[in-house]
Computed example of a mutant assay.
Amino acid sequence: MREVAFLRKNADKWKEFEQLLKDKSFDNPDKLAELYIELNADLAYAQANYPGSKTEQYLNQLSVMVHDEIYRSKKEDTNRLITFWTQELPRLFASKQKELLYSLIVFSVAIGIGILSSANDPSFVRYIMGDAYVNMTISNIDEGDPLAVYKKAEELDMFFAITINNIRVSFYAFVSGLLTSIGVGLVLLNNGVMVGAFLHFFAKYGLIGEALRVIFIHGTLELSAIVIAGAAGFVVGNGFLFPGTLSRKESFIKAGREGLKMIVGLVPVFVAAGLLESFVTRYTQMPLWLSLIIILGSLAFVIYYFVILPLKLKHQDERL
């Protein structure tokens, strides 16, 4: 079908859709779902037959408007909070697996850089972590309690300080996306190099096993959240660099909303990591089996909630 004929055939229907969206008193979720399905069918046809055309761009924008209306109800359901965590957020992460992978790769490479730099330059760890921290840790090692730093602060004060700092770091990674993906890469590089230098420092004293067992009680969630925050930053940066069929401004705004939603989804993870670091990590002599239960349980949660569940919901949606 020629594009002009396609427009004539469907123009009245699309205008009707626009009027429904402008009607503030319209509140019919089932009807909106039908519109969304029908619009996506028209959009798929336009993408296949008129790629890059104004028709494709118009349908894409209209489809986004219907999608946003579906998820923005004036009368919030009592289970809205539940569906956000069990449905909406995992579905968002299902579409951001590529950004998650990029963030993980950059962070892992940065850790490797930190390890190699520390191995080749003994002063590197002091440059990265500061003389005060290094001297204190060496003193703790000499006294036979290398991870005593986790025992010195009062639990509740430590929890608030750590949690606020972790949330700040995640928002910093997100905001760095405003400087395009390069800014996010620099944030991940900085944090990854610090982790690598830290690990090599303990390995040099033959304490890497103990350090990993103790630190990853909270570090599993904390480091995973940094990677996910980096992915949110990549979403924002890529939204500006690669707008696709949307205008650059529209793509950037849409990506900003998605990235911010990903960051909000991390807040409970940072709270849990703060609780573990403040109240549990200080027990450095806990049995190995208990440490492993916490570490592996945290890792299983991260993999399931941010990878397995999103992909499972995505496959379910594709079958509908």
Rank of each mutant, 00 (worst) to 15 (best):
E210A: 12
A41C: 07
G112N: 11
R91T: 02
R91V: 02
A203Y: 08
S123N: 13
K54I: 15
R80A: 14
V227L: 14
L101V: 06
E76P: 01
Q47G: 04
K54Y: 11
S123K: 07
M136L: 11
H67M: 15
L35V: 03
I295D: 06
F26T: 09
I294C: 13
R2P: 10
F26D: 13
I217K: 14
R8F: 14
V175N: 03
V109I: 13
L223M: 08
Q285Y: 06
W289E: 15
G233L: 00
K152E: 15
T180Y: 03
L104C: 07
S291L: 09
A161T: 02
A119H: 07
K15L: 15
P310S: 07
G259N: 07
H218R: 14
F6P: 03
W289K: 09
G265D: 13
L147M: 15
Q285F: 05
Y58S: 08
G244A: 00
S25R: 00
A161Q: 09
F160N: 01
Y45I: 06
K22G: 04
K254E: 13
F201S: 05
V187P: 02
A110L: 10
V195T: 02
I215E: 01
E222L: 11
P146C: 13
L188K: 05
N166R: 04
Y305K: 12
Y71Q: 00
M286T: 12
M286H: 11
N28Q: 08
I115C: 14
K24F: 07
E250T: 04
F174M: 03
L89P: 03
T220A: 15
V4G: 06
K9D: 15
L241Q: 00
E258V: 06
L260Q: 11
P29Y: 05
A5M: 12
S73Q: 09
S25A: 06
F240R: 00
Q19L: 10
L221Q: 10
K22W: 04
W289H: 11
P287E: 09
P287A: 14
I263S: 10
G206T: 08
G230D: 01
